[in-house]
Design a protein around this nucleic acid. Structure first.
Lengths: 162, 162
DNA sequence: AAATTACGTCAATAGTACTGACATAATCTC
DNA sequence: GAGATTATGTCAGTACTATTGACGTAATTT
């Protein structure tokens, strides 16, 4: 079981190594743009949930608005993200990726996706589902609502350019 | 399959959320000591591989010695880690946890371990092995040597105070 | 004896995060 | 409609983790 003193050092460590290398892929690309991981995270979620508001983004990232400000401003200034006034509530700013932003988000996701594919190479659909279930179970229960496994709810995709 | 454009957004995102919450557990405890995540990582590996040298630690953490310096110094000053002159090569500094250091490492690992246990609650040994294999496969192949799943090689455990 | 290695340290900088405070516009509530 | 609340933006100050580059010392290797 590789558990010692009831402490699961094996998985704790594997998780560290796995995440370290998982995030190292996009880091290379980001450096070319003068961006960091924070930009990646913002761009990822704007791309995944086009039209989400600033408040929603803060909630997903679990950072403060002051932390988001610089990063978001840079993404807007470099034409990766645009803000639109909320239709229902004009105080809100809906965030959308531009074509440029979508392209970068995709470029960043590609090597990560490749790594995942390689890791699941000989895995069945059942095994893949098991890994997904494990990762989901590692998330705080109250926060699982944030997860959007892509099936329903998010039709994204066809949002035009803005 | 929840794959879109050949990009595995589902697992990319799950990995982000899982790691975010996984690291949030120890963060609370660390704050009480005025420590950060860097201290946690150092303490973890010193505890796991007692006697490892500074160079080995740098290699595992993939940071520079200047980054390590401050954090390691604090852990030494607060009596969580001790340095011993290398027996073969007196230039080397072997790092060992003190009893205090081991206690903190354990305290930090406990909530993470609890989270993992909960996530694997209804899982068989086979399923657990599958998750381990997935995480290991996510690590860069050249770096898998760093992993030490606890079975062999590392007898740690019985090192006395130093 | 000279080169290399392991480690420590000083200085300057960058990226990401935080708290606290204040401003503006829009919406909600009484 | 007046006042409270909400969504967002911004300014100032600080902390933590990380970087590069440079230099020093002691020990080992060549």
């Amino acid at each position: 079981m590789s558990v010692e003193d009831g402490i699961d050092f094996a998985i704790i460590e594997l998780f560290f190594f796995a995440y370290r290398d998982f995030t190292s892929d996009p880091d290379q690309i980001l450096a070319d743009y003068g961006f960091g991981r924070a930009h990646h995270r913002v761009l990822h979620f704007v791309n995944r949930r086009p039209g989400l508001t600033v408040a929603e983004l803060l909630d997903v990232l679990k950072i403060t608005k002051q932390s988001l400000a610089r990063v978001l401003k840079q993404l807007i200034d470099t034409d990766h993200v645009v803000q639109l006034q909320g239709p229902r509530d004009r105080r809100q700013r809906e965030l959308y990726p531009t074509a440029k932003g979508r392209a970068l988000a995709l470029a960043l996701a590609r090597p990560q996706s490749r790594r995942i594919r390689a890791a699941l190479e000989d895995s069945s659909a059942t095994e893949r589902a098991l890994v997904e279930r494990f990762l989901e179970a590692m998330v705080n229960p109250e926060l699982r609502a944030q997860i959007d496994v892509g099936s329903a709810k998010m039709s994204g995709k066809s949002h035009g350019e803005h």
